[in-house]
Amino acid sequence: MVRRQGVELYLGISLIIFLTVFAVLSPLFANYDPHQTDAERWLQSPGKEHFFGTDRLGRDIYSRVVYGARVSLAVGILAMLLSITVGTALGALAGYFGGFADQLIMRLTDIVLVYPTMLLALTLVAIFEPAIWLVVLVIGGTGWPAVARLVRGEIMRLKNLEFAAAARMLGASHRRVLLVHLLPNALGQIVVAATVAVPAAIMTEAGLGYFGLGIQPPIPTWGNMLREAQNYIRHAWWYATFPGAAIFLTVFAFHLTGEGLRQRLDPKSQSGRERRAYDH
């Protein structure tokens, strides 16, 4: 067990850093304008000039994948921040105060949790027209219940420990107890939840793009590139392969990190019932 620790974490984190650098500095790495079409050189196979080949309009797939990383990571991280913020706030309130507030919040999380995320996301985006902010809002808005459950459980456990009771007896306000004493102790769990929320969001965004309801072309995203590519799988293996591999690699990096963190925080691991909270 001890021997195992860390491998995933280090691998995952270095992959994430690597991908982030690529995404942030994409203009440096992209050797072509991702929007530049070329009527002569469409569907060219990967080579020295075009590392990942070109698409049907002669655009450089490598450059599009690199630019796509920006969109995917941005959507993933923003959606994660949203679901973590909402989830932590609601989960903390429910766990700390219990009673009616707890009932109310937990039923709300139950209601959102019973919807399959992808279906709800598809529905919402279909109704309100696809746009970047909406995609973030929808993914974040469907991701928070998992976090809320997790934080609630953690807070409930912590508030019964002696230090919390002591702080309360010394006259600390509820707010202070929650913010200063309880939440920092739950931080580890929240970070784990965050590392799992990012890949889930990236996957959902790509799925929406694949069904044509995500961010619309010509802005390159991995999902909408795959959508275009599926009509050319016989002509150009590289068309579908590289955007998909990019999704896989990114999601894998975050999953590795999450797994590594989890092992660090809780070597014994949790039982199935609680783990449900962040594997949706």
Binding site: I233, G244, F252, D279
Partner: peptide, 16 residues
């Protein structure tokens, strides 16, 4: 972990 990270639509396209 890798299986969880595979986008299923991509897997489908690759399988096809």
């Amino acid at each position: 972990l890798a299986g969880l990270s595979l986008p299923s639509f991509w897997l489908g396209i690759i399988l096809m």
